[in-house]
Write a protein that binds this DNA or RNA. Structure first.
Lengths: 328, 328
DNA sequence: CGACTACACTGATACGATTCAGTGCGGGGT
DNA sequence: ACCCCGCACTGAATCGTATCAGTGTAGTCG
């Protein structure tokens, strides 16, 4: 099948009776270029009539940079929370002419893809070697780090995640728990979220006058989780903040195996409000993050970093709600 | 910071003392162009020395097509199974010079992204309007449909998913169940997997001489699941094939609520072997799909579609294992 | 010895956008 | 009458690659 010829800006120029330069100036709203209103309208009309779409390849070749925002994600399962975040982010940035695409990465093959795409920005939820980040920055790509705080590169998510931990401990404290535990994930790939949440719990303990949380890793295995539950009990712990719902549910399963029940023997509170949280035994009390707010914050970070004039001042991150069920 | 100038094929040509044309011929292995072995080596050496990487943008502009494979995914949670599939697919295609990127889509904004990327192929796990698919094909993009069978466009995954259903019913039949149910998902976005799996169960029933399965939707809610379980019991159903582990676990939760236990009252078998399957009450019997095999099949479909000479003959899809735990 | 072919390359152009450096023209100031 | 300035545009170069259409040399054949 013969491929239809592309509609180019030259076609538009011809149709509108102007030069191709003028078309470019108009479509890009180039400042300090005075183009009369009627010419603008003629050009817009021609664009519509011909169904013109600029060639991203040509633009990228010329500018050395595309309108793509690359979202790097570690090879972790993406719960509905994560998907929601991605969707909101995609929508938010699309509104500013940026296309979000995601790359699921276990290894370090990022470099080649990055060179191929020449993205405007990279948002990294996965660990990327410091040198790669330096390469990207040197090349003009704006890098948003959501993975740990690497040497003074700010992590946009830290503040919000800190508040999540804070909300967990506030709830347990309000229920009268004085000795609490923290159920940590084993997977090192979630440190970006883990560190600040735990820090939030720690600071909350301090402010409520409680002893610091007793941190234990909870493996996703009923036996191991049972052992952790028993150990906490032995220390006098009565309530546990879990890193997320998955860990919380594993802990509840372990408790059942150990003959313990929540919240009487050990109160458990998760994070994420994943769909399965309500099927836990007992139904899981958890923190529901408002992904639209989180996404907006990330989008602003990107737009700000690209020095787009349309970056908003980040609003107050009213971005999470406590969901009380029965486990705490 | 001054952006370092790119190393181009002209630089390579100069270094190797040949023309840019020759560099292009060598690097692309253009057939019918006789280039002496020593020249080739000089060029490769120059490439290494200068650290040359071709500009994807320029290539795309010239060819009208990039080396990108776009993976469209519906806005569903991606379990570890799905992530594994994506990872294998990424690795498989990378080996052939294709970059896989994914796009999570709820709406129908695909068109703009597709025009931007001019991908070599689109693998669609999400519904894409027929007209869009036609547009893409007309433009030379190879479209792999993994979403339903739309009018004779083959769905690559159908055969494998059919076998999954078959394995579920084979197991139940081997345990002596004669009246079985099928727990269907409510989410219409998973039809691509649902339809063939159910068909596999149906055909299995027929071949084992059982009555067709009693199909019920199982909402992810304990009350609703309990009602479904009671209804099956009333029909004399003793075993249920669930669409996936998530549905199976919801069903088990419903059964607990209804005072029923698995496998005595109702045997339940899932699909996916998700990490949480082992924490179910009782631990869930399920089917583990071998994602490396599934990915290889998809990769072959793409390579074949692009008429790459290196597409392999699809091997036998020995791509799933039964994992027996306690629920069936 | 001249025609021809095969070999191993090279020159120039096209892909479609952005942008620098003008160009012509009408009007205002002196 | 002259100069200058701002307005509203335009011409041409450029980004890096792929590829068509040659080009010069050496060897073969009759």
């Amino acid at each position: 099948m013969a491929r239809a010829r592309r509609v180019t800006s030259i076609d538009v120029a011809r149709e509108a009776g102007v030069s191709q330069t003028t078309v470019s100036y108009v479509l890009n709203n180039v400042p300090h270029q005075k183009i009369s209103e009627e010419t603008r309208q003629r050009i817009y009309a021609a664009v519509d009539k011909l169904g013109y779409t600029p060639s991203a390849a040509a633009r990228t070749l010329r500018l050395g940079r595309s309108d793509i925002v690359l979202l790097l994600i570690a090879d972790l399962p993406l719960g509905s929370t994560a998907i929601e975040l991605i969707e909101h982010l995609t929508a938010d940035l699309e509104r500013h002419g940026l296309s979000v695409i995601t790359r699921i990465e276990s290894g370090r093959t990022v470099a080649s893809l990055w060179k191929d795409l020449a993205p405007a920005a990279v948002i990294s939820f996965a660990p990327v070697a410091k040198e790669h980040r330096a390469d990207m920055r040197a090349d003009g790509t704006y890098v948003v780090n959501v993975w740990g705080d690497s040497e003074g590169e700010p992590n946009v998510m830290t503040r919000g995640q800190f508040r999540i931990g804070r909300m967990q401990i506030d709830h347990l404290a309000s229920q009268g728990h004085v000795r609490v535990g923290y159920a940590a994930p084993v997977d090192p790939r979630v440190r970006a979220f883990f560190d600040p949440r735990l820090e939030g719990v720690r600071r909350g303990c301090a402010e409520h006058g409680l002893t610091p949380p007793s941190v234990r890793e909870v493996v996703l295995d009923a036996e191991a989780a049972a052992a952790a539950a028993r150990a906490w009990r032995a220390e006098g712990v009565t309530g546990v903040c879990a890193f997320n719902d998955e860990v919380a549910i594993a802990l509840l399963a372990g408790m059942r195996a150990a003959g313990l029940s929540a919240p009487a023997d050990l109160a458990v509170i998760g994070v994420d409000d994943m769909p399965m949280a309500r099927f836990a035994e007992p139904p899981l009390t958890t923190i529901n993050q408002h992904m639209d707010a989180v996404a907006a914050e990330l989008a602003d970070a990107v737009l700000g970093g690209l020095e787009r004039p349309d970056a908003r001042r980040p609003g107050p991150p009213e971005s999470a709600t406590l969901v009380i069920r029965r486990s705490a």
